[in-house]
Amino acid sequence: MSESAGFNIEDLIKVSPLNGGGDEPRVEQLMGKLVRLQKVTLCFIQGKRSLEEGIKDMKSVSDSLQKELATLQTEAYQLEGIHKENEELCRKLQFQCEESEQDSVRQVEQNKKSEELLEQYRCEIQGFKLKHRKLRMKFENQLHQLMEQHKNLQSIFMPQRLPAEVESAENIKSQLLAAEELKLAQLRRLSEELEELKKQKQMGTTATETQEE
């Protein structure tokens, strides 16, 4: 049997006989049961409304959660795409960084070789300068000796031989001057090669700085 509000429903429909044993129920008893029945009905109606409102609220919350879940799934998909793009970008940057490091190593080696070659050319130029200085001193000494000999020969030999001696001295002088010009040309060539190497080194350094930036 169902019970509510301190009584059972059967009590509402069960009518007690009168004291005289008649079939008519007492009015007071029926009125009390009617009032209780109205209260129970009102409670049922309120409970039903509360239950319907609760179901409605739960449905609203469920819809909101479904929408939020869909939004979160969309954001998760977008974040996954961004993460893949960032990984790809990271791989590209790492590859470029490795290439830059390799280029830097090659540039350093090239600069080292250029410096060694420049130092070699400096030594060669210094050697040519020293050799040229010695040749010039030798030439001046020979010229001085030749002039002294010419003076001595002028007093010893006949005047008719003087033009031949002078011509010989001029030839020797021309040969020495030609040798000097040749050494000077070699010295200029080495200087130009040294300047060219300096320019190449500066260009390489500028290219390295540009890559690092």
Results as ranks from 00 to 15, higher is better:
Ser50Tyr: 03
Lys138Ser: 13
Ala178Gln: 15
Glu87Tyr: 02
Leu194Met: 14
Asn111Leu: 15
Leu184Glu: 04
Lys59Ser: 13
Gln160His: 04
Asn19Lys: 11
Gln73Leu: 10
Glu165Gly: 02
Ser104Val: 03
Asp103Glu: 13
Asn152Thr: 09
Glu213Val: 04
Ser191Ile: 05
Gln126Trp: 00
Leu42Thr: 02
Gln29Phe: 01
Ala70Trp: 01
Phe139Gly: 06
Leu65Ala: 08
Met1Gly: 15
Ile45Arg: 03
Lys56Ile: 05
Ser168Phe: 08
Asn111Ala: 12
Lys84Gly: 02
Leu135Met: 15
Leu190Pro: 00
His83Thr: 11
Glu75Asn: 13
Glu148Asn: 12
Met137Tyr: 01
Glu87Asp: 12
Glu53Ala: 14
Tyr77Trp: 04
Leu79Trp: 02
Glu115Trp: 00
Leu176Gln: 09
Lys14Tyr: 05
Lys151Cys: 10
Gln160Trp: 03
Arg136Trp: 01
Glu24Arg: 13
Pro17Val: 08
Gly47Met: 10
Ser114Met: 13
Glu88Ile: 05
Lys131Phe: 06
Arg91Met: 09
Lys131Glu: 08
Leu37Ile: 03
Asn141Cys: 11
Lys201Val: 04
Arg49Asn: 07
His132Phe: 01
Cys43Glu: 12
Leu135Asp: 13
Gly127Trp: 05
Ser64Thr: 09
Leu18Ser: 12
Glu212Ile: 07
Lys198Thr: 02
Glu140Met: 12
Met58Pro: 00
Glu99Thr: 09
Ser104Met: 10
Ala179Pro: 00
Ala5Met: 12
His144Gln: 15
Glu101Tyr: 12
Asn8Tyr: 01
Ser16Gln: 15
Glu167Lys: 15
Leu93Asn: 14
Ser64Trp: 02
Glu10Tyr: 06
Glu180Leu: 06
Leu69Asn: 10
Leu184Val: 00
Arg106Trp: 02
Ala179Phe: 01
Met203Ser: 10
Phe95Ala: 14
Lys67Arg: 12
Glu170Lys: 13
Arg36Pro: 01
Lys173Glu: 02
Gln186Asn: 10
